[in-house]
Amino acid sequence: MGQKVNKRELAGILDVSERSLTEWQAQGMPIEVNAGRGSSNQYDTALVVTWMVERAKAGGAKESARDRLDRIRANREELAFAKDLEEVVVAADLIERFDAMITAAKVELLNTLPDNLASELSARYGVEVDDQLIREPIEAILRKMADYDPDDDALSDGDSDEPDDSEAAAEDRD
Rank of each mutant, 00 (worst) to 15 (best):
T45G: 06
P163N: 10
A91S: 13
M1K: 13
L133A: 11
A104P: 02
R143P: 02
Y148W: 15
L69F: 09
I102S: 09
A104Q: 07
A105C: 04
E136Q: 09
N75C: 09
L14C: 08
L14H: 02
E63D: 08
M1P: 08
D44R: 02
W24A: 00
T103G: 11
R68I: 08
K83S: 14
R8W: 03
G36Q: 02
T112S: 03
W51C: 09
D153V: 07
A168E: 06
P163K: 04
A146K: 13
D159H: 12
E162W: 07
Q3I: 00
I31F: 00
Q25S: 00
V49S: 06
Y125L: 07
A80W: 06
V33E: 01
E96K: 15
L47I: 02
D165P: 01
G12M: 03
D152E: 15
V129E: 01
A46C: 08
K4Q: 14
K57Q: 12
E139N: 09
K106W: 03
P114L: 00
D84T: 12
D153E: 15
E162Q: 13
E96D: 14
V107R: 07
K57H: 09
N111L: 03
A26K: 05
E9N: 05
A146W: 10
E120M: 10
E86H: 10
R71M: 07
S166P: 00
D149M: 13
A100Y: 05
V16E: 02
S156Y: 08
D147R: 12
L14G: 02
G60S: 12
R68P: 01
S156K: 13
D164V: 02
R124C: 04
F81A: 10
R66D: 14
N41L: 11
E171G: 01
K144E: 15
S160R: 13
V89D: 13
A65P: 03
T45K: 01
P114A: 01
A91C: 09
G126Q: 14
L117C: 07
D99F: 11
L142M: 03
R76S: 08
L85N: 11
M101S: 09
A146M: 05
D93C: 09
M29Y: 05
N111I: 01
P163M: 08
V49L: 04
L69Y: 12
Y125A: 04
E23V: 00
A56Q: 08
D149F: 10
I134T: 01
L109M: 07
K57A: 09
A170W: 10
E9I: 12
T45F: 00
G158T: 04
S156R: 05
A146R: 09
N111C: 11
R68A: 15
W51L: 06
T103V: 11
E108L: 05
G36C: 10
A58K: 13
F81W: 12
E96W: 10
V53F: 08
Y148N: 09
D152I: 01
D147M: 15
K106V: 04
D130R: 03
A123T: 05
R124E: 11
D157P: 00
V127E: 06
M1A: 13
I134S: 00
K57W: 05
D70M: 12
G12H: 00
E128G: 02
V5W: 07
D70A: 14
N75H: 13
A146I: 03
P137L: 11
I141K: 07
S20D: 08
T50F: 03
A65E: 15
V33T: 11
N75G: 10
L117N: 00
